[in-house]
Design a protein around this nucleic acid. Structure first.
Lengths: 221, 221
DNA sequence: GCAAAAGTGTTCTAGGTACACCCATGT
DNA sequence: ACATGGGTGTACCTAGAACACTTTTGC
C-alpha cells in the first residue's frame, strides 16, 4: 500500500497510433480485457510507473500491448475530466505515434486481449473519451502535413514520390496535383535520390528516394 | 491518509502568464514561500484537487496566488521527468494564459509570498524546469501570432490599431510596416470599429476598435 | 501496340513586401 | 507654426494553383 496525506490521481499515457495500410490511414486499437468498458475498443496505454518518464511509459505500453517499437512519438494533450474513468480519478497524457509499414510488418506480436487496425475514417465507438482524442490527433496530423516533414514518418526507408504523394492524399482526403506536389516536396530539401528504381507494374519504373534525416521532423515553409 | 495499491504521482498545473506592460512582453512569477526552491521565482500553480478539472485547477491556482481572473487559457504541454521535484514524483500540466492590461489593473490582489512581473526576455533562473517551460510558451505564443487572432487576448476592450501593432512587434521582436499590418489585420475580419476616437497626445486622434469575438481565438490564413 | 503510371515546365493569380505623403490634433 | 503619431494606395515580386504531353515498362 502506498499512502499520501492528500488524494492523488492515477496517471496514464495513451497513444494514438497511425499508419498507412491498405491504401488508407489506419489506427491501432486494442480490445479491453477488463472493466471498465470491458471488450470495448480503446487506445493502447496504461499507468505511468512511479520512476518512469512520460514518453518512456507511452513507448513501453505500446510495446507491451501491441509489440510495436521504433515509432515517431509526439505529445498531443492531457485529458483529466474528473469523471472520465469510473474507477478513480485518472489523468491521461496522450501521445500520437506514426509508424511506417515496414516497421509494422517486423513487429506484429502482442500481449493484449486483441489488437486490430481500423480505418481512421471509420472506427467503432471507443472506451472513455478516446473518440474525442482520436479526432484531435487526426486533426493535428493533417495540420502538421502542411508545415513539417512529418509525413516521412509513414514511409519505409526507400520509397517513390508517388507513394509519398499518396500518403498526403490519404491523410488530407483530397487528390493533389503530381507536378506541384513534386516541386514542393523537392524544394523542401528533405529527400535524397536513392539511386535505385522500383519496377512496380506494367509501367515506367519509379526512382526511389530516402529521407535525408529519417529520425527528424523538420518545420518547413 | 489516502492509500493506493500502486504508487501514484502528484499532479499539478502550472501557468505561464503573459501580458503587455511597460511597452514590453511580461511574465508573471511568484516567489516560492517554502522548500523546495524556497525563495526562488517560479510559475504560479499547484496541486490538482481530486475532483477538479485540469483547467479549473489552473484558473483556481492563478486566482489564489495572484488574484488574476478572466484570462485566456490554453494547454501547452505536460512535463513529468521523474526527478523534476525532489519531494515526490510530480507531473505538471502546463498552461499558458494571456491577459489584457485592463483586467490586470482590476485584480491586483495576491495571497502568495510575492508576485511580480518580469520582462519575458530577461527573467531570473526559475525553480524546477520552469525556465524550459517559459521558453516553450514564448515560442508557441510567437508562432500563434501568425496564424490566429491570439494577440487580441492582450488587448483591452477598446484599442487602436497602433496599439495592436505594437503588441505584435513586442512579441515578435521586430518592427512591422504600418500599412501592411493594417491591411492584414483588417482582412482577417476580426475587428469592428468602435466609433470612438482616442485623443492621446499632440497628434491626430486614433479610431478605436473592438474584437468582434473577444472570447474566441480563431485560426486565420 | 496498348495500357498504365512515371516524369517534366509554363502560365496565371493572389498574397506579401516595399515604400512616401497628407491629416488632425496639442502645444 | 510645428511636432507628433494617425491614416491611406500602388508597384513589385514570389509562391501556389492550374494545366497536358512524352517516357518507359509489362503484358
Amino acid at each position: 500500500m502506498y499512502c499520501y496525506e492528500y488524494p492523488h490521481p492515477a496517471v496514464t499515457t495513451d497513444v494514438v497510433v497511425f499508419s498507412i495500410r491498405n491504401d488508407r490511414l489506419e489506427l491501432l486499437l486494442i480490445k479491453r480485457a477488463s472493466e471498465p468498458y470491458q471488450s470495448h475498443w480503446a487506445l493502447p496505454g496504461g499507468f505511468v510507473d512511479i520512476d518512469e518518464d512520460l514518453n518512456a511509459c507511452a513507448l513501453r505500453e505500446l510495446e507491451e500491448e501491441t509489440g510495436i517499437t521504433g515509432v515517431y512519438l509526439e505529445q498531443l494533450c492531457t485529458v483529466g475530466a474528473p469523471d472520465r474513468d469510473p474507477r478513480e480519478r485518472v489523468i491521461s497524457v496522450v501521445y500520437f505515434a506514426l509508424l511506417s509499414e515496414d516497421k509494422l510488418e517486423a513487429r506484429a506480436a502482442s500481449d493484449a486481449a486483441a489488437v486490430a487496425w481500423f480505418s481512421a475514417r471509420d472506427y467503432p465507438r471507443l472506451a472513455f473519451d478516446h473518440n474525442m482524442i482520436v479526432q484531435k490527433a487526426h486533426h493535428r496530423l493533417a495540420a502538421k502535413l502542411s508545415y513539417s516533414t512529418i509525413a516521412l514518418q509513414f514511409m519505409p526507408r526507400r520509397f517513390t514520390l508517388s507513394q509519398l504523394q499518396r500518403v498526403y492524399e490519404l491523410i488530407l482526403g483530397e487528390e493533389l496535383d503530381k507536378r506541384n506536389f513534386r516541386k514542393r516536396i523537392l524544394s523542401m530539401d528533405c529527400l535524397k535520390e536513392d539511386g535505385g528504381l522500383l519496377n512496380g507494374g506494367k509501367h515506367r519504373p519509379a526512382k526511389l528516394y530516402q529521407a535525408k534525416q529519417p529520425d527528424r521532423v523538420d518545420f518547413v515553409r
